[in-house]
Amino acid sequence: MEFGVTVASHGRWEVLTVTGEIDMATAPRFRQRLLAVIGTGAQNVVIDLSGVDFIDSTGLGVLMGGAKRVRSAGGDIRLVMAGSRLADLIELTRLDRVLDVFDSVSAAIEDSSS
């Protein structure tokens, strides 16, 4: 699957849906889109990784950098990984302890735990 990022607004949440692989070659495009969304003043961001087949350390770095920026502005960032093969990696790297992970976009935007 070819890499792509789409952005949609869902109420107070901006949802980035990512497809393909996030690696050294595609991470700069992912970072650019994420920073563009954050740059518009979005304080609540969901990143849907359900369509991502692979993510390397560069991609994980983009997620962490985005989380720092959003949280420093008083916002929230969440991951969606419905049926994703990335769950083991996210758990192994303990990213699930830093970012809230949900099974669907609707669950991520409806949850009021934060």
Rank of each mutant, 00 (worst) to 15 (best):
V62P: 04
V37K: 05
R33H: 14
G74C: 12
S106C: 01
I55W: 01
A82S: 12
L95M: 15
L60V: 14
V18K: 01
R85P: 01
G4L: 00
V80R: 09
S114F: 15
V52S: 07
T58W: 01
L35P: 00
V37E: 12
G65S: 09
S106F: 01
A87Q: 10
G39E: 06
T17K: 14
M64H: 05
M1N: 12
S114L: 15
L99N: 08
D88C: 07
R97P: 00
D103N: 13
A25F: 00
V18A: 00
D23Q: 01
V70R: 02
V7M: 07
G61R: 04
R69P: 07
T19I: 09
E91G: 15
V45P: 08
V7A: 12
V70M: 06
I47S: 05
V62S: 12
T17M: 07
E91V: 14
R97V: 01
V98P: 03
A107Q: 12
D103Y: 03
L35M: 13
F30S: 09
M64T: 09
D53H: 14
E2R: 12
D56Y: 11
F102P: 02
S104E: 03
L79K: 06
G59D: 13
R31W: 07
K68F: 02
L63T: 03
M64S: 09
L35S: 13
D48H: 10
L86P: 00
S9D: 12
E91D: 15
V18N: 00
S112W: 01
A73S: 13
A82I: 02
G83H: 03
L89T: 15
A108M: 04
P28C: 04
I90H: 03
R94Q: 15
A67C: 12
F102K: 04
L86W: 00
G65W: 02
L34G: 10
F54P: 13
D48E: 10
Q32K: 11
G4F: 01
A27L: 08
S106I: 05
M1L: 08
I22W: 10
F30N: 08
A108C: 05
L60D: 06
V101Y: 03
V5N: 03
H10Y: 02
L89D: 10
I38V: 14
I38A: 10
R94C: 14
I47W: 04
V101W: 01
R71T: 13
W13F: 13
E21I: 05
E91L: 13
V105G: 08
S112I: 07
T93A: 14
G74R: 05
S84T: 05
V70D: 04
V15S: 00
I47E: 06
S57L: 02
M24A: 08
T26I: 03
V105M: 09
M1G: 15
R97D: 11
D88W: 08
M81S: 15
T93D: 09
G75F: 05
E91F: 07
L99H: 06
D103R: 13
R12V: 08
R29W: 01
N44Q: 09
D56R: 09
M81Y: 06
D88R: 14
L16V: 03
S106M: 00
